[in-house]
Structure formats: structure tokens, C-alpha cells
Design a protein around this nucleic acid. Sequence first.
DNA 1: TCCAGAAGATGACAAATATCATAGTCAGGG
DNA 2: CCCTGACTATGATATTTGTCATCTTCTGGA
Lengths: 230, 230
Amino acid sequence: MENSRCENCIIRQFNSLRAMSREELKKVSDSKTTKKLKKGDPLFEEGEKLNGVFCVRNGVSKLSKLSANGKDQIVKLATKGEVIGQRSVIAEESANLSAIAVSDMEVCFIPKESINTTLQSNPNFTLEVLRHMAHDLKEADDVIVNMSQKTVKQRVAEAFIYLKNNFGLDEDGFLALTLSREDISNVVGTATESAIRIISEFKKKGLIHTSGKKIGIKNEKKLQELVNGF
Amino acid sequence: MENSRCENCIIRQFNSLRAMSREELKKVSDSKTTKKLKKGDPLFEEGEKLNGVFCVRNGVSKLSKLSANGKDQIVKLATKGEVIGQRSVIAEESANLSAIAVSDMEVCFIPKESINTTLQSNPNFTLEVLRHMAHDLKEADDVIVNMSQKTVKQRVAEAFIYLKNNFGLDEDGFLALTLSREDISNVVGTATESAIRIISEFKKKGLIHTSGKKIGIKNEKKLQELVNGF
DNA sequence: TCCAGAAGATGACAAATATCATAGTCAGGG
DNA sequence: CCCTGACTATGATATTTGTCATCTTCTGGA
């Protein structure tokens, strides 16, 4: 399968692996394993020690953390081209988040040895990973501010816009990534009933429309105004 | 002033600068400038382009972001030994946070050139910075979960424990870092009045005691139980 | 030392959000 | 094809949190 060689993998263009040399890439390719996951399957669970990272070829995974009250908080949705588990491997800590597939996925598992040796010898690669993490950190800061300063309604509206911008639309114009109402509430950080109620309200106001679990944005402008506080 | 040479600075032991070589450190030392700030002085403001990073020798700075509704959200408190502004310099973006002194401070300003050249040539340094950022990212994830899943009361209680663990106590047993009620509410992500009310409640329940702005923890165990949800 | 403005405190009330209950709807396996 | 369990939806209600108003208490200069 020539297509399964990292050297030829297009996904690589989107993540830090592009800073690897030809030889480094060859090593990674030789040591990696490919894995298929079904919706709902875990890549790893919170607290688990990771022996490597996952490079997403297809599908989407939610990264979430269980809170004391038994609810999951989704911290990030990772999709094609993203590398999952970097943070834990780099910090040499067990995973602080669980990763679960929210759609069928295809991922490559890269053993940490390949990563670590490259980190120690290729400053370009390390710098590239660092830049990615700097970006993630900024996003995390933004999420903190949103969580504490925006209303649930604003956060739901923002989530829909985020889903559109990051995962796009399907052929019928619905958000391509379909999340359960519970997952939506876990992204937004609210009770499932509250999220459902707000979805109903948005429907009534003509901001969105739905078909089963699928959600379509009808009036993005108004949705965005809502996010900004009218 | 031999004491102002980075090579001899003890602070360095606590941050990524320890991974620099003797020569790199010399360059940093030659290009750095020392700055004294009074409580309330800004190191930089959100949106500003940073020409370097700040290494904290003394005092504490709050890193905060202004939200749409006009409230600041404090994302992090940085103290002795921490480096501020790394993220922006590395990502080559303008600052996403404002940094303001919450106590009198002494900081060293290190121009970004010294940082960038070392990042490109010394993998150990880059890796060290990366590890720090991985740690910050984990902390940010935890904050997100706390913000969305814990009550204001729990977050206030947690803030006091955090302040004790990270900044210690003064000679009288009060929290060594004294924040205004407004700053406390901005850390916790709530209205100032709500924070004040909860402080009053904690006082009545004998969990804490106060003297002016100073806060002393009386019953850490109960405070911790409260954080964990009884 | 005194005064003005800021910060702290508290009540009354409004708004946002969670919780509990219940019913309808959907999707997949026998 | 139908049944069952999970998901969605909505009402009623309780709880939490924010807002506005008012008062008090500090605190740092003139």
C-alpha cells in the first residue's frame, strides 16, 4: 500500500510532521500502525499512559474530561490532519483528556520513540510542534473567556458557527459534523435540556433548522450578532 | 551589578532559560533590560505586538482578557521565575492577553531575537519551552472544565486554595497574595458582588477570616470538600 | 487631618440555568 | 416488522447567579 507511507500522506501537510526530514519520516512510517475506529470507540481514556500519538487521517474525535459531577466537558474536537496526544507524550504525563471518536475514524498511531528522538535532534520539528501548541494554548484561553463571560445561548450560537467553519456543510447544507444533543451540551458546558431548549428557540426564531439530529444554519448573521451580544 | 547577570540569576533555575548554553545566556544577558513596575502598571496590553518576553524576578502579574461585556477574565497569575509573553513571540502573533502587575514587580525584558535564535539552534531549549507550554495547556484545560462544571462557590473556594498553594502565606497566616475583590471575581469568572457575597458566607461558616482585603484560610479541609462537591 | 473617590458590603429583585418529571420519537437488533 | 432502549423534547419548578441601588468603610493624596 504505497498510500500508507507517511512520505506520501497528504495529511502530513497540515501538521508538524511536515518539518520532519525524509529519513525521520521513513522511521515514523516504518513504526506506525493504522487503526480504524467506529463512532463511539475510544482512542484513549483520561489517566491512561500514552505510548505514542495519533495522527487523524479521517473522521473526528472529541477530547473531553470528566468532571466531578459526572458530566463530560468537551475541550476540543480534532479532525483530519490533527495530531492527538502530543501534549501527554511531550510532558511525559498520562493523558489528561479522553479521546473518543464522534464519527468513524481512520488514524495512524505513531510510537513515542519516533517522536521523542526527532524532538531532540530536529529543532525545526520541535519548533513546529511548539508553534502548534502555542496556537492550542491561545484557543484554550479564548475558551476560558467564553465559558466564563458568555451566556449559554451565546455559546450554543458560537458552537454552531464553529462547527460550520471547521467541519463545513454536507450536500444538503446541514452541518457536516452531526453531534448528539448531549455532545453539544458538553461542548457548550451546560445541561442537555438547556441545550435542547435553546436549539428549539433558535428554530422558532428562524436562526437554524433541523432534520433529526442534523442542524442547518439559516441566518448566520443573526447568529453571529447573538454571539457578539447583539 | 554582578547580580543582574542572567548567568547568576537564581530565577533562571525555575524556567526554560536553564536549558541555554553559557554563550546563549551571555547574549541574553547583554541584550536584556530590567524594569520595575508598580502595582497596577501594565507590562503589555491585549493586541500589542511584543518585541520580547518578560522574566519575572519578583512580584505577580495577572494575565487577563477583556470580554465583550466589558469584564476582564484573569486566565493566569504569573510569579517569580515565570516567563510572560512566550506564546505570542513564538506564534509571532500579537498578545492575546494583557499583563498587569498585581503587586510591585521586578522583571527582565528579553528581546525576541535572543529567544528566536536560540529556539532555532538549541533543541534542548526549544524542548524545555515546549514542555512548559504543554504544562500550561493542561492547566488551561483544567480551568475550562472548572469554569463550565463547577459552581461559583466551588470556584471561589478553589481559588483560595490555589492562592495558598502557589503564593503561600504571610507572617500572620493570611494569603500572601492579596487580590482586590474585583480581581478575585475576575479569576473566578463571576460578578464582583457575587464573589463578595460568597466571601461573606465563607466567613460566617468559619471557612475563612478576613482583615481588610486580606484573607486567611481557617478550615482548608472543608474548603476542599466544598470544591469536590461535599 | 480631612476629604473624595474607590472599594467593600448587603438587600431586593430579575434573569439565567439546572433539575425533575414526563412524554414523544427514532433507530437498530431480534 | 416491531419492540426496546436511547435520544429528543417540553413543562413545571427550584436554584444559582447577575444587576441595580444604597450604604459603609477604607485609603491616598491636598
